[in-house]
Nucleic acid binder design. Structure first.
Lengths: 191, 191, 191, 191
DNA sequence: TATGAATGAGAGTTCATTCAT
DNA sequence: AATGAATGAACTCTCATTCAT
């Protein structure tokens, strides 16, 4: 005796499971229906098309993340507490919604070997940063007790998001981008 | 009279253009062949399947990125120069290879409206961080001259990468993850 | 508070509108229900299936035509009056039931261009007859004051129906078909 | 080693067989392919869609009819010969292309019983005309040796085509339609 | 080696029909 | 009697892949 809304949520939940396992194109509407315990045609009573269903999941998940993040901030008093809460929420959400993350990275069209290889490349990239940090430490450019791994994540994460923001989200002429600014903030943390 | 290797590169280049415009499943082997100026069957002389071709592109691009990043580090003396070079390379690569980024985010199955909406959500998430930074500034928890926007990218980027690393790449029990560590590095930079 | 029979007629009327606009397969039971202002399932209380509903419409319409034609004959005294009444009824029925005619010719699966083209072919066929009549007139084989257009309809209509009757309705060996007979009657009218 | 054009014709021929047996919507592309001895996808190398294939058949057939009719006219000297040739061609074409006629009348969605019933209605309509002719003969309004059946086809065919032309093909205000004209031509032939 | 005509598995989607309410 | 949510059979069309030339 589920309400229309409950049924819709059921389908979304089932979709997340199937999409995350097989990717967008690998997921068959029939599988989703079976996973939700309903008939194939019924999905179309609730969602116009496969694309729309997928978009609904994205909306659903992203909003869930945003709200959770916001809430985790309000739970702290000092900025330190808040930041720690954010960090915790981030890992917890990721941990509990690995399926959703799988959806965002359409990882499923890739072979196992390929995933391994991509992972290795990723590590190689991070290692470059770590080596840089290590060298700077030896030269006394940054403080001695700095955890090199954490510094790496800090640098790589900040630079990546900064670039994406400036190039993709809020495009600016390359010449005008203030790289010194972000580097300054980072260095301050590392020194 | 291109060598076998040159032809292979031609196909990869053509693939990148087509994959980036239409996504993995939207890209037709025929379009890629036409874009490369060859016959449909010829692609299969060089690549086993569509999947393999796609993977080859990934490898090709990621490697290009890694090498470029490494090179940009060697060009600096101090860590400040190196970091600035990294930042510059990041934005330049992104700017010049937007097609590749399009491939990684399977953006093409999403409707225009959906993309706008996701973008808005993304901004909303970042705004949360900015507000937190702002409040902390007012309370004197962090220094007054800090650029709030840059701080935001620094925090969000670092936390994201940290979580992904700890959960997806190098999984650890949730309880053991050292959130305090990354927060400490960040705060040091913000104070 | 319509009687069962009235409701059935309502459905038939609605069906005619929908079938005529979309053709048999293009017509959806749901559209018919909506057009009749009732629920989808209710149609099945009155008609076994879509096919049966369609057949009911045919019966309904053809009978209406037959009865009307018969009545129009009884209204005349001389054969001339009767024929004129028939002619009038024919055009009036056609004019008032264009929807039904649309149903018989499954015109809806054809593109606009195609319909135009078919219409042109039809005219080309008739033009052949008209030219033949015209030539015969010049040679003095038929009377001078004969309206060539009317003669064309007379010939083409009579020959078509004659063929259909002899081949499709009441099949006879080709050799035995008395073409001379129908030609004789026609010529008598044209001379 | 069939040329592209020959293959296209093969498909058309196969389509005619399948469409005529099952009607437009009843015909499955797979059946057509099998009938043509090719793969399902191959049809789409030659025809954009099912609709287009259907339209091609119509064009093909109607043109064949028109050309044949024209030719049969040129084979005669007097109008009598020409008319007889037309009459013969009509029946022969119908006889040899019954499949095509089946396509035009979407007879296949009708049950056997229904077809029988429609046939009966058709006869009933014609019988009305015949009775009218018979009565007129008794009253001396038309000549005694007139074959009543032939007269019936002549009248019914001529009136039908006349109405269709005036209402559907070349629409005119009802009041302006010259029924007396066609009746005059007909009567002249019957007297 | 290069090609592209031919293929057919496979998927999304529709909609007539059913049946619990 | 009336309904409309649920169903799943069945359809068209796509496109990666093959292979004869």
């Amino acid at each position: 005796m589920a309400s229309r809304e409950e049924k819709q949520t059921d389908i979304i939940k089932a979709s997340i499971r199937v999409f995350s396992e097989h990717g967008f194109d690998g997921a068959k509407m029939e599988s989703i229906a079976k996973e939700a315990g309903i008939g194939k045609g019924t999905i179309y009573e609730y969602f116009e098309s496969k694309e729309r269903l997928y978009e609904e999941i994205l909306k659903f998940s992203v909003e869930e993340y945003r709200l959770g993040l916001k809430e985790s901030m309000t739970r702290g008093e000092t900025i330190e507490e808040k930041l720690r809460n954010c960090a915790c929420f981030n890992t917890e959400f990721l941990n509990g919604h690995m399926d959703i993350v799988q959806i965002f990275m359409q990882v499923n069209i890739l072979s196992k070997e390929m995933r391994v290889q991509l992972f290795a490349e990723h590590l190689a990239i991070l290692k470059n940063y770590t080596e840089m940090v290590h060298a700077a430490k030896l030269k006394g450019e940054i403080r001695e007790d700095l955890d090199e791994e954490l510094a790496t994540y800090c640098i790589a994460g900040a630079l990546d998001l900064f670039s994406k923001q400036r190039v993709l989200m809020d495009p600016q002429p390359l010449a005008k981008i203030d790289h010194q600014g972000i580097v300054g903030v980072l260095l301050k943390g590392l020194k």
